[in-house]
Simulated assay, not measured.
Amino acid sequence: MKKKLIQHTSEHFEKILQKTPEYIFLSPGRINIIGEHIDYNDGFVMPAAINKYICFAISKNDTSECTLIAKDLNEAYKFDLNDDLKPIDKMWANYILGVLYQLKERGFAMNGFNIVFSSTIPMGAGLSSSAALECGIAYAMNTLFDLGLTKEEIALIGQKAEHTFAGVNCGIMDQFASVFGKKNSVIKLDCNTLDYEYYKADFKKYSLLLLDSNVKHTHLTSGYNVRRQEVEQGLAIIKQHFSEVKTFRDCSEKMVLELREKLGDTVFKRCHFVVKEIQRVLDATTALTQADFKKLGKLMSETHEGLSKEYEVSCDEIDFLVDAVQHEKSVLGSRMMGGGFGGCSINLVEKGSENELIERISQQYRNAFGIELKPYKIKISKGTTLYKN
């Protein structure tokens, strides 16, 4: 798949621009094993880069003109790097423009370039194709123009681009995973300090399987921003009653339960989920260290229950996919992954059982919703890189 993607992207570059690209970059999508919706709630998350990529074929030119070609969309956008960069009506281009804007703001000098990109990261499946695009561009600019950025700076520039040019107030997890990914390792990331540790993710006789619901409900962005307001409101109330609380990390389940009435039903549920999920990530690192995959699977399923009933960011289709595997002997755990309201479920399953499981669940899902399920067997891979032939 990877070789094919690189070949197709390079060939398209040569066909359109009549020359061979100087550089090829690969920027991966990501999964999150556990720690959902707490990257912006001062928690820990456990993401990993996966073997689905955006491939960038790039060459510098001697002008200030830039040409962006989105091969999969059959669209292009041209602009002058010296002009004021502003969001436009092509969302895919905004992720790139947002990164270039951040680099210009920081005073970095760049020249024009031509770029063709193509992807094997499914769009709208919650695998962070946007972060892969942002970080791939920042990484490429860093290499092309010798900007001297650290990996951490690349991730932060990607995040800022998404805030300003795409209007999504995302946490840092997606960009961090895309840049810092390491083969066969998950990252335990502290979203406050950006301290991180790698944990070996050798799942032995188990593998990760994503089941893409093929739905993306439109209230993702609005629902996401509302959740952020609700938890901020909740934290403010908790702080009033417990002076030692600075962030949700200082907060115990007992505190939240004590303030149930003051928080009100909805805000209580949101805060209760956050506090429990922060603890689940810590428990998951122990489970991984001890290679206790049954425990890890159980934690994943508990996360889904919280996301569905307390944080209320799931949807009927994803709940169906998670419920459908709960009694399968070959499945240790399953949960919704990503922002919610559609996208994928992530499943920890016995190796060798995947095809039969996919067939069975696909049939059930088709009968229930009339929608085709898309399965993705994935491996944990390294982060954004310059591809060397």
Rank of each mutant, 00 (worst) to 15 (best):
N111L: 06
L103T: 03
D89M: 04
G112S: 04
I50C: 08
D72F: 12
E65H: 13
N41F: 05
I115P: 01
K15H: 14
T67D: 11
K15N: 14
C66A: 09
L81C: 05
N61V: 07
K78L: 04
N41I: 06
P87S: 10
I33K: 01
I54P: 10
Y101K: 13
Y101P: 00
S10G: 05
R106M: 06
M91L: 13
Y95M: 01
G29I: 09
N74Q: 15
Y40C: 02
T9R: 10
F117A: 00
M46D: 09
I34D: 03
I121R: 04
K78D: 14
S10D: 00
M46T: 11
S59P: 03
Y23P: 01
P28I: 06
A57G: 10
I115L: 15
D42I: 01
Q18G: 12
K90V: 05
A93E: 03
N111E: 12
V99N: 02
D72V: 11
L100E: 01
K19S: 14
L73F: 15
K19G: 08
I34N: 04
I16E: 14
Y101E: 11
K90R: 11
K52D: 06
P28L: 05
A93M: 06
N94G: 10
H8S: 13
D84V: 12
L97R: 07
F113N: 00
K104H: 06
N114Q: 13
W92R: 10
L81Q: 05
A93L: 06
Q7C: 09
G35W: 04
S27I: 09
I33Y: 01
N94K: 08
K52Q: 15
I54K: 12
K90H: 12
P122K: 12
A125Q: 07
S118Q: 10
F113Q: 00
V45K: 10
F13K: 07
R30V: 12
D39H: 08
I31N: 04
D39W: 07
Y101D: 13
N111S: 14
N114S: 03
A109V: 07
P21Y: 02
K104L: 07
D89T: 14
G124L: 08
K19T: 13
E65Y: 11
C55N: 03
L97F: 02
D89E: 15
D84E: 15
F108D: 00
L68Y: 08
H37Q: 14
L103P: 02
I38R: 08
M110I: 07
D80S: 13
